[in-house]
Amino acid sequence: MKPVLQHSAVLRLLHQAPLLLFAVVLLGFGALSPAFLTVANGVNILVQTASTGILAVGMTFVLLTAGVDLSVGSILFVSAAVGGKLLLSGWPLAGTLPVMVAIGAALGALNAVFITRFAIMAFVVTLATRYFGRGLGLRITETRAMNLPEGMYQLGAAHWLGVPLPVWVFALVGLLAHGVLTRTAFGRHVYAVGADPEAARKAGLYPERVIFAVFVICGGCAAVAGIVTLSQAPAVSPGLGNNREFMAIAAAVLGGTSLFGGRGAVLPGTVLGALLIQTIENGLNILNVNPYLYPIVTSGVILLAVLLDAARCRVLAEAGRRRIFVES
């Protein structure tokens, strides 16, 4: 039948919307500037994406359970502030980094306690801890910028097999998250809880434990993202990580993760979404566009992607409208 065929073609096109947008953006900037489509710039984009990408991977876990974490920017800031203090007091890098990650995970656990133990909406809890964390971080840093020792910078500049370390970390986190989500019992439980926590409980799962774990993971990822950020610009400034949660959510949603839980993926999904956002910024930068236009263009693209996704859902619903028999 003709209408069905049309639908599926439209659907397939819409399904690939993030990929298509990415291709359009690449070709567009490539046509406008010869410096854009080069290997060096590609690596550059990957390095720039790493931090937000890692943040978005953690966010994906939370979004898959139909939650949201508005506090990741603050978690990043607090763990960076503590890490900075430790480094400046002479702690070795190898000792500081695990502490930073542990702090991120602990703050995630704090969110999780309020969400699971007291059944408060994640939005409210993490909005509160977002401000709480920002205040705490400012208190630790005494509202001053902290310049970190040379070691942090060397970490960011280090290469392995010709690829910068931040990219390796990003790849590792992405692959690990993808593996956990698709190939472990815990990962499948994340999807199950996101689809229907009540059904999960009846099936003998422990939704609270799963939700607890995703917030811990998200907090940990925020700390890792902080480390990657510091390795590129080794200073803890008072605005570090501010509003980064919005970018992380946007990247995940761009990659096709649903805010209603149960649908989405790290690979290619979230990683592609994060790359898309960063590529736009990088391209605008190369074209010497007024930096004030970046957020406008970026949010415009996000809005466009969200509209395309909504259109996809509508076509899907239209195609899936109950057809109880096929006319002969």
Binding site: L127, A128, T129, Y131, F132, G133
Partner: peptide, 9 residues
Amino acid sequence: TMIKGGVIL
């Protein structure tokens, strides 16, 4: 800011 976050929680 910290205390306000706490009050909301």
